[in-house]
Design a protein around this nucleic acid. Structure first.
Length: 585
RNA sequence: GGUCUCAUAGUUCAAGGGAUAGAACGGAAGUUUCCUAAACUUCAAAUACAGGUUCGAGUCCUGUUGAGACUACCA
């Protein structure tokens, strides 16, 4: 139970004792806004009906009761119906001790739940772009956050490796490729295949018969024509090598790989089941449908008249198989909001088929599109921002900036390169993840992503600076004498803590609740925002109070401890975003 | 046409129905014999419009305007 919950419980107890009302919904506890004195605030307006007194009188009464019955509460003040409660410094000092002693600080207790997060899910006919980057970063981060919340998490990738779009690349390569390979051209495999996908569309303008040829190729593929199958495997292999390089650089990974070529036939049994149960029906032409008009949607096709399945059929089948095979308690699809309709229908169909618990366990994490100043990315208009180019550009900018600022002086080439990689990716990831996933976000390729202000590098810098202080602190204390043996809570008297130091402890103390909230709302943005607040608060403290020059050794030790914990929590929070924090930059 | 999102400083983003709407970038002005100035401090600057519910609305409801998505026998 966190502190807020404890206060809330105490307040509810006070209300029940004083007014005889036991409705916890009336007890609203929030963190006190920083312009007022206090740690937690009780809003008394909802309680007035029960107290039959003025807001201030009610607040005072509750305040006095709380102080009398809760030793950790130091005092209170009342402003316009808001009861601001202050906890004793000794309470916060003890809290700090707990934080410092807990290597797993922030991690939730095991929930016993298994959750699958499906994300990335690329097509194998072109390289990844900016939209995929948001998907990948979000999916990976949400998975890590859910894991930190105590769930068993499986990261899944469903690769769309078959279909007419793949055949287009294959056909263009066959006709115009002259045997070009990633090795012969020096091109990354996914980019090479993407080149032929573009080529197909160009050639199609001159020769419309190409479309039929591509369709013929798809038929041959489905019939396992050896030549076509070999070509398909070869070109997909190139793409996978390319994707793997991009994934690695982005730092995303998967526990389960699914390939649509192996799953696209799934789901037909479910359709038969649905027909038998009478929830689906067959039209005269043989196609199978489900009537969803009662739920405000349209009729949905499940099998074509030629008996082949559609996207929805496959998704039904894969969902069924996953729930069966992995015993999932939750299945989260990280897919753009353009597919809201699809997932609405998917859940509805599962419910109609009788799998209501599975239907309820599915959550579509519907994230917003990344738009350019001129609107959506359109491959036809050449406005697609390529993922590899973007990452490379960020790292390059980081390198230049580090050089300009003289941060790389005295470092080896390897160290410099590593810092540029860390900072460039940190800037990109934070830029994407700090935005509420559900919202459409804007990216302007002409303006490079910032490295100052509310950015990844700002937070990384705070960490690096703390590391620098800690290094020097150890040396000053005679070398090798780290502080891990010291009892944190007893370092420095709590009464001597500066207000800023208490603020930092309070913010550190919030971290586990932030992780939980991020997990519940599937929002890495909450973690990003927290990390920024913590870095900002610490920077201000760092600016105003010297740590190493502090003469009182107990106070100095406390400040080093505090700094160490700030660095630690920053590192934990940033890790959940997939951002590494450097020890120097 | 129908369904669904979204609309906050010049710009990009915050704000669990609660106090004087927070940041950052950009703009103006400062801080370095001192632990990393990728930092810190100060100033100017916003809830699209009109109603309603509520003790209290950026947040909930209705309408208007504007932007976007979906509405395939594609995936």
């Amino acid at each position: 139970m966190n502190i807020e919950q404890k206060i809330s419980l105490a307040a509810a107890g006070a209300v029940e004792k004083l007014y005889g009302v036991a409705d916890t919904a009336l007890v609203q506890i929030a963190k006190t806004r920083k312009e007022f004195t206090g740690d937690y605030t009780l809003v008394v307006f909802p309680l007035l009906k029960a107290s039959r007194k003025s807001p201030d009188a009610t607040a005072n009464e509750i305040g006095e009761y709380l102080v009398a019955h809760n030793p950790e509460i130091e005092g209170f003040n009342v402003i316009k119906g808001f009861l601001n409660i202050s906890l004793r410094p000794s309470f916060w000092a003890a809290r700090f001790g707990e934080i410092a002693d807990d290597p797993d600080f922030g991690r939730g207790a095991p929930t016993g739940r298994t959750v699958m997060v499906e994300y990335s899910s690329p097509n194998t006919n072109k390289p990844l772009h900016l939209g995929h980057i948001r998907n990948n970063l979000l999916g990976w981060s949400v998975a890590e956050i859910l894991r930190e919340c105590g769930n068993d998490v499986l990261k899944a990738n469903l690769v769309n490796d078959r279909g007419i779009h793949i055949c287009k690349s294959m056909l263009a390569w066959q006709l115009f490729g002259n045997g070009e390979t990633p090795e012969s051209s020096g091109m990354k495999g996914d980019h090479l295949v993407g080149k032929y996908y573009v080529r197909f569309n160009d050639e199609l303008k001159k020769d419309e018969s190409l479309l039929e040829q591509a369709q013929e190729m798809l038929r041959k593929w489905e019939a396992h024509d050896p030549e076509i199958y070999a070509l398909w495997e070869r070109m997909n292999g190139w793409v996978y090598d390319g994707f793997e390089a991009t994934y690695q650089r982005l730092g995303v990974d998967f526990d389960r790989m699914y390939y649509e070529s192996q799953t696209y036939l799934l789901g037909k049994a479910l359709v038969e089941d649905g027909l038998a149960k009478g929830v689906f029906y067959r039209r005269d032409d043989g196609s199978v449908w489900c009537d969803l008009t009662a739920d405000g949607l349209d009729e949905k096709l499940l099998l074509r008249s030629d008996g082949t399945s559609v996207y929805m059929t496959q998704d039904l089948g894969t969902a069924y198989r996953r729930f069966e095979d992995e015993q999932l308690d939750g299945l989260i699809y990280v897919v753009g909001n353009e597919q809201n309709y699809h997932f609405q229908v998917l859940k509805l169909l599962l419910a109609r088929l009788g799998y209501t618990s599975w239907s309820d366990a599915i959550y579509h994490l519907s994230y917003g599109m990344v738009e350019l100043p001129e609107g959506k990315m359109k491959s036809r208009e050449g406005t697609v921002v390529d993922a590899d180019d973007l990452v490379e550009g960020m790292v390059e900018t980081a390198r230049e900036m580090s050089q300009e600022l003289g941060k790389l002086d005295g470092l080896s080439a390897d160290e410099s390169a590593a810092i540029a990689e860390t900072v460039g990716l940190g800037a990109l990831k934070y830029f994407i993840l700090k935005v509420d996933p559900r919202k459409t976000m804007l990216f302007d390729p002409r303006e490079s992503i910032d490295f100052n202000g509310n950015t990844g590098p700002f937070i990384q810098y705070t960490h690096a600076r703390i590391c620098s202080v800690l290094r020097k602190g150890r040396n000053a204390d005679g070398g090798g004498n780290d502080h891990s043996d010291t009892d944190y809570a007893k370092v420095g008297a709590p009464e001597s803590y500066l207000p800023e130091e208490l603020e930092i402890i309070k913010l550190l103390s919030d971290y586990p609740a932030v992780v939980q909230a991020a997990g519940q709302s599937y929002s890495p943005a909450l973690v990003a925002s927290y990390a920024y607040d913590l870095a900002k608060l610490y920077n201000s403290y760092y600016h105003d109070h010297s740590i190493l020059r502090e003469e009182d050794s107990a106070v100095r030790a406390f400040r080093l401890r505090l700094s160490e914990q700030v660095a630690g929590v920053i590192k934990k929070a940033m890790r959940l975003l997939g951002i590494t924090v450097p020890e120097r930059m």
